[in-house]
Write a protein that binds this DNA or RNA. Structure first.
Lengths: 119, 119
DNA sequence: GACAGAAGTTCGGAAATATGGAAGTATTGA
DNA sequence: TCAATACTTCCATATTTCCGAACTTCTGTC
C-alpha cells in the first residue's frame, strides 16, 4: 500500500495491485524456458491453453492441495516471464496466455514446447 | 576414486570418470527446459550444434574468463538433462549434442528452441 | 454500513540450489 | 620424472524457492 498523495488530510492510497507485464521486447527466451522449466507451471499453462484460456488461479492449479502462496508465486513467475496476462475480475483473477505475443516474438516455440507437456 | 579390486597387493582403481548419461526414457521436458533456461548453457548448446558438434568444454565456452568450476558445472547440468554426451579424448573432453535422442523423444523441440537462441 | 467469506498477495524464515576459489585427478609431452 | 593441460570435486558463501501466517481487496448478506 503506497501513499501517493495527500489532500486535505485524507491520504489517497493506490493499492490496486496492477500487475506489471513485460513488454514484447523484454520477453527473453531464457526467461520463458525458466518459467516453463517447472512441471507445475507447465501444467498451469497447458490448462490455460486447453481449458478456455481464461482461468482463475485456483481453477488453473494442477491439484487443490497446493498452498496458496506457492500458487501465487508460480503465477508471478509466469507473469514476469511474459507468458501470461493477469487482470482482476472481482475477487478472482483472470489469467490468459499471451499466445499472440509469444508467437510474434518466438514463432513456433510455445506450440513446440506444449505439444510435449504432460508426457 | 573407487577401488574395485585388489591383485597381489596392488589396488586396481578405476578413476575413469565415466559420465552417466540418462537413458532416452529418463529425459524429461522440464529437465531439458531447465537446462536450457540459462543463457550460458543455451550458448554452449548452440555452439556445439553450429561449430562442429564436437567441442571440448573450453572450446564451447561462451567467453574465456568464465571460471572452470562454473563451466564444468554447466556441462554436468546439460549432461544430466540428457542434452549432451561427454566422452574423454585424451586430456580434453568431447561433447556432442544428443540431437537424435532428443528428436526421438520430443520431435521439433530442440530446433524450435535453438532457432531463437542468441537474439 | 458492518461482517464474514473468498481469492490472492506479501512477508519472512527454513530448505534447496547455484556460484566460484582452491585443491585434486588424469593424460600428454618434454 | 616433471610440468602443463583440461577438467572435476570439495566446500563455503550467495541466491533462490517453498510454504505457513498474516494481510488486502472485493462481494454478498444482514
Amino acid at each position: 500500500m503506497e501513499v501517493l498523495n495527500e489532500v486535505k488530510g485524507a491520504s489517497i492510497s493506490f493499492s490496486m495491485v496492477q500487475f506489471v507485464h513485460p513488454a514484447l521486447a523484454d520477453i527473453t527466451l531464457a526467461g520463458i524456458l525458466a518459467a516453463l522449466a517447472d512441471p507445475m507451471r507447465l501444467r498451469i499453462v497447458k490448462a490455460l491453453l486447453e481449458d478456455g484460456d481464461c482461468l482463475s488461479c485456483t481453477a488453473a492449479a494442477p491439484c487443490p492441495e497446493i498452498p496458496k502462496s506457492t500458487l501465487s508465486n508460480h503465477f508471478r513467475v509466469l507473469r514476469e516471464a511474459g507468458l501470461i496476462r493477469t487482470s482482476k475480475k472481482g475477487v478472482a483473477h483472470r489469467n490468459t496466455v499471451r499466445e499472440a505475443d509469444i508467437n510474434a516474438r518466438f514463432p513456433g516455440l510455445l506450440k513446440a514446447i506444449l505439444k510435449h507437456a504432460g508426457e
